[in-house]
């Protein structure tokens, strides 16, 4: 987890976006390793496949369609102000952790509400040794169904947005062929976007 902290700061400093997306992939993978040692193997699987895999691919695809380099923005004062805000928020959050139960404490309130019931009864009720699976697919199946709807909506949204981009690019090429200035073509485009 300390490695993750170092990596996050590196992500903040590096301007080459290709390196940033690679680092965020490694960051996810380290997070997956941390989940394994914290006994959350199912979460680790998902993080390694989805966080480290698919996110990185999406990020690289975006870079291929846009640009690789982050521009140097001369906002020294902005950085200082942001750092101040972040430091204050972080201090408040750390103050909040003093009320948290200690790490790994078995008598923490979180372990005494519904979790023991799942651990005791889920094998008899669902018949799966993996409690995470039986909670996900049986007790909270409507939640999982909702998740599927979210993914469907996101996929529809991405296709709607990028489908427009593809069409616009073809129109742009046609416009370029007829020697129309690209800047004139771009202004009605923005009006439709807003």
């Amino acid at each position: 987890m300390l490695i993750m902290g170092v990596m996050a700061i590196a992500i903040a400093r590096i301007r080459d976006l290709f390196a940033v997306s690679m680092l965020s992939g490694i960051f996810s993978l380290t997070a997956a390793a941390a989940y394994v040692v914290l006994d959350a193997v199912d979460v680790a699987f998902t993080e390694a496949a989805v966080g480290a895999g698919i996110s990185t691919v999406l990020m690289l695809g975006t870079l291929a369609l846009t640009t690789r380099q982050e521009k140097v923005t001369g906002g020294k004062s902005k950085g200082t102000a942001a750092f101040f805000v972040v430091a204050v928020t972080g201090a408040v959050l750390i103050y909040g952790t003093f009320d948290m139960p200690r790490y790994g404490d078995p008598i923490a309130p979180i372990h005494h509400h519904v979790a023991p019931r799942y651990l005791e009864k889920s094998f008899g009720e669902v018949g799966m040794p993996n409690v995470v699976t039986s909670v996900l697919a049986s007790y909270r199946s409507f939640d999982t169904l909702g998740e599927v709807f979210v993914i469907f909506t996101a996929a529809t949204g991405v296709l709607a947005i990028l489908g427009r981009v593809g069409r616009r690019r073809r129109e742009d090429e046609e416009a370029d062929e007829t020697k129309t200035a690209r800047t004139e073509d771009a202004s009605p485009d923005k009006e439709t976007a807003s």
């Binding site: 914290l38 006994d39 959350a40 199912d42 979460v43 998902t46 993080e47 989805v50 966080g51 698919i54 996110s55 999406l58 979180i110 372990h111 519904v114 979790a115 799942y118 651990l119 409690v131 995470v132 909670v135 996900l136 909270r140 939640d143 999982t144 998740e147 979210v150 993914i151 909506t153 996101a154 996929a155």
Partner: peptide, 19 residues
């Protein structure tokens, strides 16, 4: 055993996060 409930919630959250 570790508490399975947060694991389930985060499993869902990771996938939604990628979406």
């Amino acid at each position: 055993y570790a508490n399975p409930l947060p694991h389930v919630l985060i499993l869902t959250a990771i996938v939604v996060g990628v979406a």
